[in-house]
Simulated assay, not measured.
Amino acid sequence: MTAIGDSPLARRVRAAATRFTTPLLPDDYLSLVNPLWSARELRGRIVSVTPEAEDAATLVVEPGWGWTFEHSAGQYIGIGVQIDGRFVWRSYSLTTPPSRDGRRLVVTVRAMPDGFASHHLVHGVEPGTVVRLAPPQGEFVLPEPLPGKVLLLSAGSGITPIMAMLRTLDRRHGSGSLADVTVVHSAPDADRALFAEELDLLGRRHPGWRIVQRHTSAAGRLVLTGSGADGEMLEDVVPDWRERETWACGPAAMLDDAEKLWADAGNADALHLERFAASFGAAAQEGMTQGGTITFARSGRTVESDGATTVLQAGEEAGIPMPFGCRMGICHTCVAPLRTGAVRDLRDGTEHRVADTDQSSQTVQTCVTAAAGDCTVDL
């Protein structure tokens, strides 16, 4: 699909306009007419904000010129929203199948306790707000054809990519699909459960789907490893879990337990995980006593940063355009050359260092590393 702003005619018009608008670019004038008309960056306009729970909302975004991307259910997009004069970027799973005309992007955001951007998107952003966008990414997708037996396991806001998968299957196969799909979703209570009514409806529409909605305040957590003293065992809820290709998304502790369980069962290849954040352990705590000055060479800016703030976060907070993707050290979209100094990987404490006298550099992942002293990054 070719967006109107990307047609050959539109490109010729912009090229001709450039000759008459220098030193300003056509984008500078077009943006005055319509903020979505930009060839420099991907933009979108928030069409609606619908509360889903006390701490969650669904945002519908209409992309502007340049958005020609198709996505698969389970993938995520980047959204950059301006807060206090600077753009803050976060990644959110798309919660619906690709629209037939490609003109609607839908995400459901939960306001996290310390989530600066998520709180703004849930409680502060208004319809009509123009945001920046990053293309769809992610490997957390269902294959075609679907495996014979599927388990979709989620907790909290981990239901968002799972919901996109279920809606896609529902649209693709229609009501009465006999696909063998088991869904187990855990939420703290009914007030914080996302998509509860729709999940019930999908369960009634599809005889081959078994959808289990759990409230941990009453039933306890879903126990994947250890004993069932603290809640229900997965074995009791899904006795045939070993036979199912599984997609799981939720809190880091749940996903860590799932990795161990499937590995111990010798079935690690049947488990597919989607993490919303990198797991920073002792290395992050150690970094709290370090830090330094990060110099962004191409941008010509310096930032004082502590040892627990990633280079990516430090750059974004300073208003520097930073490449990013998954924000958890998986996709390698955020890699940048480290010219001098040292950074520490917050996942395992590994230090990457380049001496001042070294003529070479090494690439580092800015989303999972923090300054370990003064350093220079080629961004």
Rank of each mutant, 00 (worst) to 15 (best):
R86H: 06
D240T: 13
D27V: 04
M254Y: 02
H173V: 00
G124D: 15
R205H: 10
L255V: 11
S305T: 11
D306M: 06
M322T: 04
L194C: 11
Y29P: 01
W65S: 12
T309L: 07
T350S: 12
L59V: 10
I79N: 13
C249E: 08
S305I: 02
G300A: 04
G102L: 07
A155E: 11
C334V: 05
L379V: 09
P98S: 12
P98H: 13
V311Y: 08
A258H: 06
P35F: 04
V61H: 01
V377W: 03
P23V: 05
I330A: 14
I4G: 08
D170G: 03
T108N: 05
T225A: 13
L151S: 10
V141W: 07
S299R: 00
T50C: 05
M1G: 07
A53L: 06
V311A: 12
R204M: 14
D269R: 13
A164C: 09
T363F: 12
I211T: 06
L338P: 14
E198R: 05
L234D: 02
G208S: 09
R210V: 11
A196K: 08
A111L: 11
V13R: 01
G78F: 06
A253Y: 01
A56I: 06
P26T: 02
L234Q: 01
A190K: 07
P63E: 00
P136Q: 08
T96Q: 12
M165A: 11
Q365F: 01
